[in-house]
Simulated assay, not measured.
Amino acid sequence: MTDQIGIFDGHNDFLLRLLRAPGLRDKIWLTGEGKGHLDLPRMKAGGMIGGFFAVYIPSPPEPAMIDMDRAMENPPYDLPLPSPVPLSAAQPVAAAMIGHLMWMERTGTLTICRSAAELRATVAAGRIAAILHFEGAEPIGDDLDALHLWHAAGLRSLGPVWSRPTLFGHGVPFRYPSDPDTGPGLTEAGKRLIRECNRLKIMVDLSHLNGKGFDDVAAISDAPLVATHSNAHAVTPLSRNLTDRQLDMIRDSDGMVGLNFGNIFLRPDGRQETITDWDPLLRHLDYLIGRLGEDRVGFGSDFDGTSVPAGIGDAAGLPNLIAALRGHGYTDDLLRKLGHENWFALLERTWGA
């Protein structure tokens, strides 16, 4: 049963849905409105015990970005990146999204976890365990003062970039076929950010960094290397997926990768069209486990941030995934590792017990 497995997820964009629907929080979170991928009822139905809740600052509409979805249906493609978002625009949005997560905590259904012990205690108490994550460091300035502010608010995981550039570094464009070596690495401010994240025990997420940025983090960081929602480049040669060299570096650091459920990251042809069978997902998961080992792979759904296979559909469809993995030969011991035990152990290695 999925509830025996317990799914702790490496990435979702649910807070963006709340940001875009002011006044509807109760309906969206507590009772569910049937839209998107995630809400409390569907998490419970799917056996989800928690996950990383991302603060992502949306880009203003730009003409070059309007046809992204259409382009992704016709590989090869090389999509332009949005313009940087200034600090003054990013900080109010981040504050609003964190406010939504804190409201969710006040309902008594969820706890924002700041330590591994609190994570385990929250799950044992039957509440959703949430980790506050920044997908892109736009709400932080060069002096890093805001990093300490957000840390005090509960921030425990941070990706220096989404894909557009920040003052800290450069992300990968959505490009197929392509490897992640797409530009310069971390700036000097970015290197200081990584060191301060290490000091504060904030997990650093590599998912959207380009190849040189990945290498810069690996050279600086004293923590395990983690990609919360990325897949295997050897299966799908998309710029956002991880090469064998990167996977080996993650393995050697005793880090972890969360499997992204996004169709575009799973399909070998790089298209966004919805997957209707389990084969692409199984190929990626088998590959990641073969490269990283059973103790360094989990799930990083990207719910509410991408389109996912029809067999999953939304959070309530996770039992279908578990059944498919059992049918593929995965044991319950392995499924528990993938479901939550690997994430919990990784966070203990990163944050301390």
Rank of each mutant, 00 (worst) to 15 (best):
V172F: 07
A315D: 10
E348A: 06
G311W: 07
L15T: 10
P92M: 11
R156G: 14
H208M: 07
E62I: 12
G169T: 00
T187Y: 00
G185L: 15
T228V: 08
F14R: 05
R296Y: 05
V308K: 09
S163H: 09
V123P: 08
I264G: 05
L193V: 05
A324F: 10
R251D: 11
L247H: 04
I7S: 07
R195G: 07
D304N: 08
P58H: 08
E341R: 13
V235W: 01
I312C: 01
T2A: 07
L132M: 09
L325M: 02
I275G: 11
H340A: 14
D205F: 02
L209Q: 05
A124F: 11
G339M: 14
R271Q: 03
D286V: 10
E341I: 01
A129F: 10
P139A: 02
F299K: 07
L346T: 12
D13L: 11
R336K: 13
A323G: 07
L335S: 03
K44M: 04
S253Q: 09
D302H: 15
P237E: 05
F14P: 02
H100F: 14
K27A: 15
Q4S: 15
K337M: 13
F299R: 11
W103M: 01
N74Q: 14
A345K: 10
T2V: 10
Q4Y: 08
H208G: 13
E105W: 00
I5Y: 07
L335D: 02
G352D: 00
L259K: 04
L266T: 10
L186E: 05
L149M: 15
G141E: 14
V172W: 00
N12R: 09
T350L: 12
M203E: 14
Y77L: 02
P268E: 03
W150Q: 07
P86V: 03
Q91I: 14
L335P: 03
L167Q: 13
A227M: 00
T2R: 09
D279E: 12
P237V: 05
G46Q: 04
N263Y: 02
L206Q: 09
A21L: 05
L38G: 05
M68H: 13
E118P: 06
T107M: 00
R192Y: 01
L346D: 06
H233Y: 08
G300A: 06
G327S: 13
A89V: 15
L158A: 09
V235D: 02
M43I: 11
A219P: 06
L101I: 02
M256W: 04
A124D: 13
S157T: 02
E294W: 14
E33R: 03
I250R: 00
L158R: 03
G255H: 07
P280K: 14
D181N: 01
S221N: 09
A152Y: 08
A316W: 04
G317K: 06
D222S: 04
